[in-house]
């Protein structure tokens, strides 16, 4: 297993629950999410920046 830092940008959703699910689904494409946070919200362009650490099987 390795740990990997990931920074991604996704679309802002209308609800926090929808956004949380989208974040976890997006991070799953990089590995198993271990820790993540929304670090910035761009309300004008409807984008959120996420920083995370995921694990990946070697």
């Amino acid at each position: 297993m390795i740990t990997r830092f990931v920074a991604v940008e996704i679309d802002l959703k209308s609800s926090a629950e929808e956004l949380r699910q989208d974040i976890e689904a997006t991070l799953q494409t990089w590995g198993d999410p271990l820790r993540w946070a929304v670090v910035q919200v761009d309300e004008l362009h409807r984008k959120v920046s996420i920083e995370a650490v995921v694990t990946v099987a070697e």
Binding site: M1, I2, T3, F5, A37, V39, Q40, S49, E51, V53
Partner: peptide, 20 residues
């Protein structure tokens, strides 16, 4: 250790399997 663009600090470990 690393500091991300947001200013938050993050980190990784090279041998997580050893920890586990």
């Amino acid at each position: 250790l690393q500091t991300a663009n947001s200013g938050a600090t993050w980190g990784t470990i090279q041998n997580p399997d050893s920890l586990l």
